Amino acid sequence: MKKTTITRGVLATSGLALVLGSIGISAAQAAPAAAPAKAAPAKTTPAKAAPAGGGAVAQTRVLSADALLRIGDAALKEAGKRGQRVTIAVVDRSGVTRLILKTENAGPQTEESARRKAFTAAGFGQPTSRLAGGAGGEGVTIRDIPGTLFLAGGVPVASGGAPIAGIGVGGAPQGSIDEAIAQAGLRAVEGGLN
């Protein structure tokens, strides 16, 4: 049995670091992260329209802790198959980091790259590979938006026709490889997103 420890929200198991931010799971729930993913549909919190007359509370859809772990597990497996040392990040629609996974020996720059790709995909609702070519120009451009990164490797997670999260991967020698790893994470939950 592998030894698992949790310190300040970081789960370390077999050379893998997992940061579980704002997903509200216990150590007992987090420990199975290295186990194979189950094929159960992803769970999201349903969106509800604000009451007529300008209600003060709105509800939004977010990925469940189980869905976050399945995304991470599938992306890690794809990175392993490809022999890549990467970081996988998942952010919610507001850009809040919900999950960070680093493979062994992933470079220190890969975390920021993955997070920014996930942020960009969630914010624009498109894979970052599609945004990369149209982000430039003269003067101020969308590249100037803080926290964005217009390199391939970020994919949006959509529910009900709208983005609810973004998955970003950083560290492979080509953005297309990062994006393939992110797509593997997305496929792990696609069936349960609507």
Rank of each mutant, 00 (worst) to 15 (best):
P51L: 15
A52S: 14
A52K: 15
G53E: 07
A56C: 10
V57C: 10
V62I: 12
S64Q: 11
D66A: 02
A67E: 05
A67K: 05
A67N: 07
A67V: 03
E78N: 11
E78I: 04
A79F: 06
R82H: 00
R82W: 00
I88K: 04
A89I: 09
V91N: 03
V91E: 06
D92C: 12
R93A: 15
G95I: 05
R98D: 03
L99I: 06
T103G: 00
N105H: 10
N105A: 12
N105M: 01
P108M: 09
T110D: 07
R115V: 11
R115H: 10
R116Y: 00
R116M: 07
T120Y: 06
A121I: 13
A121K: 14
A122R: 10
G123A: 15
F124L: 13
F124T: 12
F124R: 09
G125N: 15
T128G: 08
G133I: 00
G134V: 15
A135E: 09
V140W: 13
T141H: 13
T141F: 04
I142N: 10
R143Q: 14
D144K: 10
D144G: 12
P146K: 12
T148C: 14
T148D: 07
L149V: 07
L149S: 09
L151R: 12
A152L: 08
A152S: 15
G153Y: 06
G153I: 03
G154W: 00
P156I: 12
V157L: 04
S159R: 01
P163E: 05
G166Q: 14
G170Q: 02
I177A: 01
D178E: 06
